[in-house]
Write a protein that binds this DNA or RNA. Structure first.
Lengths: 218, 218
DNA sequence: GACGTTATTATGTATATACATATTATGTCA
DNA sequence: TGACATAATATGTATATACATAATAACGTC
């Protein structure tokens, strides 16, 4: 069926045969046709509506999928050797901007951890993280000498919701210094807020040098 | 089951009960449990292996999904009014670098289209596109006066595979001029190559001003 | 003819059953 | 003890069946 759509045997916008008909044609059960059609619909190439039938999407709003690995794994998968350097780790009052980003009404004390992830000794990602101590009190004593905050949180505090933002920016003096790039150089920024229902866990800003590539296939 | 994982009733790395057991516990059929577990496995919170059983992922390599809409839809969804401006549209010989990016052995004549997409009159995305005329010969006569190359291709030539790369970069003089930003300003770049099996269709480089945000939730 | 009700229909979902497949555990033999 | 064949088992997948649900089509009434 994917081939038929790709080869325009079923043109965009066209109504395709019903599940019952297709199951006869392909010599399989309706449940199997249903599963296949649902997969294609999830991928965005089909639009399904009860009673109205299934149509080939007119404007295929296809969806890309990215895995969000742990930085260490990301680096090791690419064949680099991983290291990280803790830059700071202290409890301080978050700015109103940070608090707002995490959906909190007012600023409060949070754990502020900054560290640098390196691949083959070269700066790969600068991580600037705020952790809601109410959500993860046990992080308070952690020194992050052997495990990065990223990995600690992933293994100690699973989240159920997240918001991720990607954008480009320019490195300020401090960021440039940490990443080993020139001031005002372009950087790739990923910001992520994670939640358990109704409760923010952490806000992290991850900054990569401009050479970083985020790749996906579909 | 998602709640049990989030609340660590089932700890990371732990083996969870088999489908048969769960179906009895939840009072439903094994097929239903199977569908639920497969969904969670796709989301990355579970790891499943035949005979070995199902485990809670130790390092949840969760995956983010986001839709790749048509630029026009992207702008209109955000509440902007869409316009586009054709900058150039001619057949020329692609550089070896472009050809290689599309998986072609040697450079050849291709359609080179450049245009600017605007939101509320302000530059939103600069699109620099190369189209393989062998794959889409009918595009040759198109003037792109009423429809953008993006939209034309989406509706006239569905693809089955794609590779997408996101990264940050700096605007060169020409790009800066087109986007209305300063030279050397940071820009957000998306590059996409689309294929039908074994045949490249188009390579497009889409450049956004640094103010652009790409957002996804999960 | 307009409007509200009912019937029809395609998809959505759950179920019991059956068998395939990959992997582990076990048993056999040299 | 080690190598190899064999059995056991959890997941993977297909199937027939049944019923739910939403949207449309048909119908009847005023």
């Amino acid at each position: 069926m994917a081939r038929r759509i790709a080869e325009r045997v079923w043109a965009p916008g066209a109504l395709i045969p019903g599940e019952e008909v297709l199951s006869v044609e392909f010599g399989c059960a309706r449940a199997t046709v249903n599963r296949a059609l649902q997969e294609l619909a999830r991928g965005g190439v089909l639009v399904r509506k009860r009673k109205a039938g299934t149509r080939v999407a007119l404007h295929p709003m296809r969806e890309a999928r990215f895995v969000i690995p742990i930085v260490r794994q990301e680096i090791e998968t690419k064949g680099g050797t991983y290291q990280f350097k803790l830059l700071s780790n202290q409890v301080e009052k978050a700015s109103p901007a940070i608090a707002q980003r995490m959906g909190l009404a007012k600023a409060k004390d949070m754990l502020h951890v900054r560290c640098l992830h390196l691949s083959d000794g070269r700066p790969y990602q600068y991580e600037d993280r705020w952790v809601n101590l109410d959500a993860v009190p046990s992080i308070r004593g952690e020194t992050f000498e052997t495990i990065s905050p990223n990995e600690w949180l992933v293994t100690h505090s699973p989240f159920s919701q997240a918001e991720i933002v990607f954008h480009a920016g320019t490195a300020d003096m401090e960021e440039a210094d940490i990443l080993g790039v020139a001031e005002r150089d372009a950087v790739f920024i990923v910001e992520r807020v994670t939640f358990v229902p109704q409760k923010p866990i952490t806000f992290v800003r991850m900054i990569h040098p401009a050479s970083h590539r985020m790749v996906t296939q579909l």
